[in-house]
Design a protein around this nucleic acid. Structure first.
Lengths: 345, 345
DNA sequence: CCTCCTCGTGGAATCGATTACACACCCGCT
DNA sequence: AGCGGGTGTGTAATCGATTCCACGAGGAGG
């Protein structure tokens, strides 16, 4: 592959001049510029980003470490992150942690070794020493969706409290009194927060949240299935199951079906995180929708602000309830076509 | 950040010795080795991958350019690619082309600039000059899922012909005679191949495939909706719609619902590419399943073989029909729980 | 005792860019 | 004529690693 030296030789100038042309430095004669550009076109020369990065100490690359790419919520987040980053002149390297802290560490280490300019993380746990060290050492970093309390890193996330309260009111209004939750890992902020919000909302209606009605999941479909089976085995099963993410809701749906039961007649179902497929399931699933694309964009902007020396801002956006048929009577007679179409908020 | 010089100084040796310790070169005394390792641990030193890549001309990175990350098929492919690559000591940078050739070119260029060791592509079109040049110039490259005819690059893909024939037989057996297809872009191999296979299978049963029953889609949900509306507007609408990918099937489902019609009573639906959600839609969707994870793994292995000097092999795996309720009577009375559970092959 | 290897080590070149610094040239002003 | 200043260009240092080559020490063999 042609290097800057080859271009310089072909154009009859020094490498410094070639570099200046390529970087649009003003003090280059028109004559030299055209000769260099001709040589570049002729040789099909492309600057070596590796060499450039070594010299400038910038890779124009962001790292994104998420918990599970197969979760449509994170897929969409990743997509919006890449789009916004591209618009700002950065590339993105995605690391999939699969909800496993050691895999998360692997990716963080790998990304740091590659000297990415900044790191976007949705932590799977309370924070590994590696990540905390990196944050302390000054690596530009922003948490997205989940965060680690007590660490001085900006957070871009959605607050689901109001939406959870709306959901509980909706359920209460439909006559449900025995409500259960499939929680996410307590080590994640989203895991614990959603349970807390749910418990608080129940309390407002004078309803308890017994231990038997709080199942421990891990944000994966299989755990949703397992927990739901436990619920159905209880002498007095809940009337509603609220899954703290979309995959566990899928598992719950499986478990209910496997028993030959029907949603919502035998048991109702709701989920945190809305996804396009929820419109098409049988029945369509009531869910709490986050402004996922917006979160991704804002997270990138905060990170790039930090990288380029501007003060980054933490952002919290609201989530909203999207009521469908999985909890009882349809909210309206017309079919719901898109996840963003209807909202009770 | 500490560099190899700092380590050398701290250990009282030269940088050459530090490098030898780090690369497990045999001729280093035990004494020097322990001093170096102590200094490394002490300083929290991590080798700079950028500098290393510049010197060794290897990045241990693969590029993966896919057409649409939001398509669950490609998400799963990306995941398996990353897993296998990690197992072989490589990282992956994913570029999402969004079915847009110019975006595909952007990513290919970006990846080549970063001097990735090899490129995995599922081309959105007949092949841009950029990609063809790269292939000709000797960049290790493997096509996955889709490919470009006439280019000397190994291909790892699934052959859906037999499964399409099974599907048509299944539909014929259920009494359907007017079958329509929502095709993918003719510029993609998967786009044209699936129509051809469908047409050939129909011919075996003496059925025609009129132009009015072949709609042109672009692998995105919206096009599935649009084409399906066209079908429904025909004086004699088809009895079955076969969508050439899962997103267009989703769009078709929307269109049918929007008219207040029911699947499969009013119109039947089948899709190429099976995904977990198809089990949970209303009704569950009959689909042709590819061995996606296996394709990803084999593609990575072929690429790494090529990179490391071994001869790469093209691979074609079979796809299989997974019959569910969206085309008529359930295949069996038991509910289908997983997309891989049942097959007619 | 001298020669020849082997082993461990360090110096320095190298990868492909960016950029500080020096310098030659030309213009205009006094 | 001489000097200051801007313009365009080249030389060389630099980023952080890897690796070729040279060299000194020490052991084995003649």
């Amino acid at each position: 592959m042609a290097s800057i030296k080859d271009v310089a030789a072909a154009a009859g100038v020094s490498v410094a001049t070639v570099s200046r042309v390529l970087n649009e430095h003003p003090s280059v004669s028109a004559d030299a510029r055209t000769r260099v550009l001709a040589a570049v076109a002729d040789l099909g020369y492309r600057p070596n980003a590796v060499a450039r990065s070594l010299r400038t100490d910038q890779t124009h690359t962001l790292g994104l470490v998420i918990s599970d790419v197969l979760n449509p919520y994170f897929t969409e987040l990743a997509r919006s992150v890449e789009e916004e980053a591209r618009a700002l002149g950065y590339s993105v390297i995605i690391g999939n942690a699969d909800e496993r802290p050691e895999l998360q560490d692997h990716h963080v280490r790998n990304l740091l070794d590659r000297r990415i300019d900044g790191l976007l993380v949705s932590p799977t746990d309370g924070g590994s020493p590696l990540m905390l060290d990196a944050a302390r050492a000054g690596t530009p970093m922003v948490f997205v969706d989940r965060w680690i309390p007590g660490v001085d890193v900006p957070v871009v996330r959605a607050d689901g409290r109001a939406a959870v309260r709306d959901l509980v009111a909706h359920l209460y209004g439909l006559g449900h009194r025995r409500l259960a939750i499939i929680a996410g890992p307590a080590a994640t902020t989203t895991g614990s927060e959603r349970v807390e919000a749910f418990r608080a909302a129940l309390a407002e209606h004078g309803l308890p949240l017994p231990d038997a009605y709080t199942g421990q999941g891990d944000f994966q479909a299989e755990s949703g299935r397992r927990v739901t089976e436990g619920f159905l085995d209880l002498p007095e099963p809940p009337e509603v199951v609220f899954a703290a993410d979309n995959l566990m809701a899928l598992g719950a749906l499986d478990a209910v079906r496997a028993r030959g039961l029907r949603v919502p007649d035998d048991i109702a179902l709701a989920a945190f995180d809305d996804i396009p497929w929820f419109v098409h399931t049988d029945p369509p699933v009531t869910a709490i929708a986050q402004p996922t694309g917006e979160l991704g964009r804002l997270a990138v902007r905060a990170l790039v602000d930090r990288i380029e020396g501007r003060p980054p801002r933490s952002v919290t956006l609201p989530a909203r309830l999207v009521a469908r048929r999985s909890c009882g009577e349809p909210a309206t007679p017309t079919p719901s076509l898109s996840p963003v179409q209807r909202s009770t908020s």
